Simulated scan of single mutants.
Amino acid sequence: MARYSMRKALAVTPNVLIAMLLTFPVASLLPPLIGLILFVGGLVILGLLLSGLGEATAMRLLYFARPVTEAEEAALAPALQLLGQRGMGPPVIDLWVLERETPVTTGGVGRRSVLVTGGLLAAVRAGRLPADQVAALIAHAEASVRSGLTRNDPAVEFWTLPWNFVRVIARVCAARFQWLPAVMLVWHARIVLGVVAVVQGVQEGTPESITAGVTGGVVIVATYVFPYWERVWEQTLRDVGDENLRQVGLAPAYARLLLSQSSSPAIHERAHTLTTPALAPRAA
Score class of each variant (00 low, 15 high):
85 Q>P: 00
93 I>K: 00
242 D>C: 09
8 K>Q: 08
27 A>T: 12
103 P>A: 15
56 A>Q: 13
201 G>P: 06
95 L>N: 04
155 A>Y: 08
227 P>S: 13
178 Q>W: 14
9 A>G: 09
149 L>A: 11
241 G>F: 00
40 V>I: 15
174 A>N: 04
61 L>G: 04
253 A>V: 08
128 R>Q: 13
270 R>Y: 05
15 N>G: 15
82 L>A: 08
167 R>Y: 07
247 Q>R: 13
265 P>C: 07
88 M>V: 01
165 F>I: 08
69 T>E: 10
76 L>H: 07
55 E>Q: 06
63 Y>D: 05
24 F>C: 04
189 A>I: 04
84 G>A: 08
61 L>S: 12
82 L>E: 04
27 A>D: 02
93 I>Y: 02
17 L>D: 07
54 G>T: 10
219 V>S: 11
5 S>D: 09
73 E>A: 14
89 G>I: 01
166 V>E: 09
110 G>W: 00
21 L>T: 02
11 A>S: 14
217 G>D: 14
267 I>S: 02
197 A>R: 10
53 L>S: 11
162 P>F: 01
223 T>H: 09
231 R>Q: 14
45 I>S: 07
261 Q>V: 04
130 P>I: 09
56 A>H: 12
279 L>T: 14
27 A>N: 14
93 I>M: 02
202 V>Y: 11
166 V>I: 11
207 P>G: 13
130 P>A: 13
159 W>G: 07
6 M>F: 12
239 D>R: 10
276 T>P: 07
267 I>P: 00
224 Y>D: 08
12 V>C: 06
109 V>A: 03
261 Q>H: 11
259 L>E: 14
96 W>T: 02
243 E>C: 04
103 P>I: 07
35 G>M: 03
281 P>M: 02
252 P>R: 05
158 F>R: 08
260 S>W: 03
182 A>L: 13
83 L>T: 05
269 E>G: 15
246 R>G: 09
196 V>R: 10
162 P>Y: 07
164 N>R: 15
60 R>S: 03
258 L>Q: 05
240 V>G: 11
199 V>T: 12
159 W>P: 06
282 R>E: 00
106 T>V: 00
59 M>H: 10
192 V>Q: 07
150 T>E: 02
16 V>G: 12
202 V>M: 09
214 V>H: 07
266 A>W: 04
151 R>E: 06
192 V>T: 05
257 L>G: 03
133 Q>E: 15
187 W>G: 14
30 L>I: 03
249 G>T: 00
71 A>M: 05
22 L>P: 00
132 D>N: 12
186 V>N: 09
35 G>E: 12
266 A>I: 02
160 T>A: 15
14 P>H: 10
97 V>C: 05
80 L>S: 10
85 Q>H: 03
37 I>V: 15
211 T>A: 15
69 T>N: 08
277 P>R: 03
12 V>F: 09
246 R>Y: 06
242 D>T: 06
106 T>C: 04
203 Q>Y: 11
48 L>E: 01
19 A>N: 00
209 S>H: 14
186 V>M: 12
220 I>F: 09
46 L>E: 02
171 R>H: 13
269 E>N: 15
28 S>N: 11
243 E>W: 06
17 L>A: 13
168 V>H: 12
261 Q>G: 13
201 G>I: 01
192 V>P: 02
175 A>V: 07
5 S>E: 07
256 R>G: 11
141 A>E: 13
145 V>I: 03
206 T>P: 00
263 S>A: 14
123 A>Y: 11
116 V>S: 02
243 E>S: 10
177 F>K: 01
80 L>H: 11
